[in-house]
Nucleic acid binder design. Structure first.
Length: 765
DNA sequence: CTCCTATGTCATGAC
DNA sequence: GAGTCATGACATAGG
């Protein structure tokens, strides 16, 4: 295996060096195998965090995806911007690594828990996953069998405990006592039943024990302890373990680039040149992660041996490593506008596109693993173009709208995380449908048009009084290039072209550009016309993929908070350009979704307020008014030079909006409580019926015992006689059982008097 | 027309 | 005291 790694690594290093010589920055994630000087040579001094580092960090800190701090979400955007411009800005390593670790933990375990587990398993992992559950089942079965055996042992013990009581009986009473024991037998059975029922939880314990016992997966399962299937934990652990192993075995190889690789390098450059027009399509790693992972899955099914095995393994590793970035990529472009981007314009896009695409190509190399395969693959430009086309299609299907839709579907279909596979399926279906339709932009425009009805700010933007809300054209134009290019990075060229068309067609959409991302204090750049098409809520949902899942962790019943989507997306026209950072933060801090059913009445009711607001020429959007933090809101009101009527109406709108959300939450909570109570009621009724049945059985057995004991009592006393030979009266005498298993006949009066004496003594004492 | 459901809105209390 | 949230009560629209 080691020599394969060496071979594999050598080819990658050579390729990376060649690419770096050609001016293409690459990140092959092989720093573990290279001396630091090589890293500097190939990747440059400001190279990004590599996937091995990420894996290391994740293993080292064992961060849990649930330990999400909202502040980190806020900083995450800025950090992500740094990540996106890694070749431009020096990122504090520790901070970035911490964020990346958390960022990776989220999407992996939180949002699509099954997705990665389905996609990224290496064959060995799959085998392990397939075998280990059986082991666990075996353990469970063993545990159950143990429990049963123990129960049997207990039963035998109980019966053996009972036997000595029978032995000392007198021979004359042997038959009678045997009958008595027969009478008492049901009681023993009850005892057994009770012991069984009491022991049943214990017998179940072995079934759960593997989850936390010694055979349980090691505490590496920091991803999602308790909720994640063990299999997922196993494969993750294995994957990271493999990565660590790779890291712990640095292989230093001589730098001997071959002619073959030279050719490959030229081919790659040619591929870049040819695919430059679609460079943005390479920036959808999540999609091509899905794409690439199909092969490993197939390979896994076919049984991996030899070189294919290695190929699938490395491909899994690489695609998995890329996935944290990939999942963020659609949102990335929106926050990409940084200072450097604002100044450099399209340069950065191409740089980034090249970098990403080179990474992608290298991932393909890794997948093949051997230089000969690399050359064969890379020489075939058709394959490259196919990959580009496919990535482009996937990219088109990966629009924020689909993201939002999938979010909605996610909320509709599930509250938990078990829907990962289905979600992935829906996602892929959506993407396929989108690629069949082929024009997501048209749909986005349709949606914009649909929602633009409810626009408030759009109207006021046109109004002369809303001068403060109008973005200066100069800034918009200045930012348009960078933002549009940034958007173009991730969203296909169609987006760009359509945006350009739109910008050429009308300036209105430029004016109503949502400037949520532009005001990012650290990024400093402003967006262009691309922004309205890809609102920030999608970015948020994309940036924090696990967030929708995480928001349910604390049983936060904020079901219908003012939707981020509505905060910006549904009606770009309604969105006032006046967007402060805290407003964005507020919307981000309270992730929310509005069900589609609630949107229509909302727009209707909003139309009422809209009319009033239009009459009073209020220059703010509804979402802005409602979702802005109070400080920002007050600041907005104070700086707006608004009349008293306007202030009152704005406050009313805010109050109504907040109360509307509160009412929705309240109703949802009430419904949940009602459903929970119904479940409890059902369970209690079942328990009651069981207890009643048990009581009836017990009473029946007690009556039977009483009758049999009475008959036995009569029979015994019929055979007993006093000193005079007269039969004893069963009402005057009773049987007394001594501690030494002796049985004596005592008078009832004497026993009553002794009891009285004992009672008197007790009272006196 | 009535009933039911969903939703928005208001009033009120708690924090 | 203001702001926010939760919730009951009422109004309204639509099926």
């Amino acid at each position: 295996m080691l020599h394969i790694k060496e071979y594999f690594t050598e080819g990658l290093i050579q390729m990376a060096i060649l690419l770096s010589l050609c001016g293409v920055r690459v990140d092959v994630g092989l720093e573990a195998f290279m001396p630091p000087s090589w890293c500097e040579l190939i990747l440059g001094p400001t190279s990004a965090l590599t996937h091995t580092q990420i894996l290391n960090l994740r293993n080292r800190y064992s961060l849990h995806p649930k330990t999400v701090d909202l502040d980190q979400f806020f900083t995450a955007r800025r950090l992500l911007g740094w990540v996106r411009s890694l070749d431009r800005i020096q990122v504090p390593q520790a901070e970035l690594e911490t964020w990346l670790v958390q960022q990776e933990a989220g999407p992996l375990s939180g949002r699509f828990p099954d997705q990665n587990s389905l996609m990224d398993r290496t064959p060995g992992q799959v085998e392990r996953v397939q075998s280990e559950p059986t082991m666990e089942q075996g353990e469970v079965l063993d545990g159950l069998e143990d429990g049963e055996q123990r129960t049997d042992v207990d039963r035998s013990d109980e019966s053996s405990d009972m036997l000595p009581e029978n032995q000392p009986l007198g021979l004359d009473l042997e038959l009678q006592w045997q009958d008595l024991m027969d009478i008492l037998e049901p009681e023993n059975t009850d005892v057994e039943m009770m012991t069984c029922s009491n022991r049943s939880p214990d017998s179940r314990r072995p079934a759960t024990a593997p989850g936390d016992g010694s055979e349980a997966p090691p505490p590496c399962s920091s991803t999602r302890p308790g909720t994640e299937p063990l299999t997922g934990t196993f494969w993750q652990q294995d994957l990271f373990g493999t990565a660590n192993q790779l890291e712990q075995e640095p292989v230093l190889l001589p730098l001997t680039p071959s002619d073959e690789l030279d050719e490959d390098g030229s081919v790659i450059n040619t591929g870049f040149t040819l695919g430059n027009s679609r460079l943005d399509s390479w920036t959808i790693p999540s999609n091509y992660t899905d794409l690439l992972d199909e092969n490993p899955t197939k390979d896994t099914d076919e049984g991996m041996n030899g070189g294919d095995n290695l190929a699938a393994f490395s491909m899994n590793l690489l695609t998995r490593d890329i996935s944290p970035f990939s999942s963020d990529s659609p949102s990335y472009d929106l926050k990409t506008p940084s200072v450097s981007q604002a100044t450099r314009g399209n340069d950065l896009d191409q740089d980034f596109g090249q970098t990403t695409s080179s990474s992608f190509v290298l991932a393909e190399e890794d997948a093949d693993g051997f230089p000969s395969h690399i050359s064969d693959l890379l020489k075939d430009l058709n394959i490259l173009e196919d990959i580009q086309l496919l990535a482009g299609e996937l990219e088109e299907g990966f629009s924020p709208e689909l993201e939002a839709r999938s979010e909605e579907e996610e909320q509709l279909h599930c509250d938990g995380v078990h829907q990962g596979a289905d979600r992935r399926g829906n996602w892929m279906e959506d993407q396929e449908q989108r690629s069949r339709l082929g024009d997501v932009q048209a749909e986005a425009e349709a949606e914009v048009e649909t929602d633009s009805d409810s626009g408030l700010s759009l109207d006021f933007i046109h109004s002369p009084s809303s001068s403060s809300s109008i973005v200066s054209e100069g800034s918009a134009d200045d930012s348009s290039s960078s933002c549009a290019s940034a958007v173009g990075n991730v969203f296909s060229d169609k987006v760009d072209s359509s945006d350009e068309d739109d910008s050429a067609g009308s300036h209105l959409e430029v004016e109503v550009t949502i400037k949520q991302e532009e005001v990012e204090e650290d990024m400093g750049a402003v967006g262009g016309h691309g922004a309205p098409r890809f609102p920030a809520n999608h970015e948020d949902s994309k940036l924090f993929p696990g967030f929708s899942w995480l928001e349910h962790i604390g049983h936060d019943h904020t079901y219908n908070n003012p939707p981020l989507s509505s905060l910006s997306s549904p009606a770009p026209g309604t969105m006032s350009p006046i967007q402060t950072e805290s407003s964005v933060r507020a919307g981000r801090a309270r992730p929310c979704r509005c069900s589609s059913s609630s949107l229509a009445p909302e727009t209707k009711t909003w139309s009422r307020d809209k009319e009033r607001a239009r009459a009073l020429r209020i220059p703010f959007s509804y979402q802005l008014i409602v979702n802005l933090p109070v400080e920002e809101f007050n600041h907005l009101l104070s700086s707006g030079q608004l009349s008293q009527q306007q202030l009152t109406l704005i406050r009313d709108i805010r109050r109504r909006g907040k109360n509307k959300i509160a009412a929705q939450n309240c109703r949802k909570r009430k419904l949940d409580v009602l459903l929970a109570l119904e479940e409890d009621l059902k369970a209690l009724r079942l328990q009651r019926s069981e207890l009643l049945q048990e009581k009836r059985n017990s009473l029946r057995r007690l009556q039977d015992m009483k009758s049999r004991f009475g008959r036995l009592h009569q029979e015994i006393f019929s055979q007993l006689a006093d000193d005079n030979g007269r039969p004893l009266d069963a009402t005057e005498y009773t049987l007394r059982f001594g501690p030494d298993d002796t049985v004596t006949v005592a008078s009832v009066r004497a026993s009553q008097s002794s009891k009285k004496h004992r009672g008197v003594k007790k009272r006196r004492s």
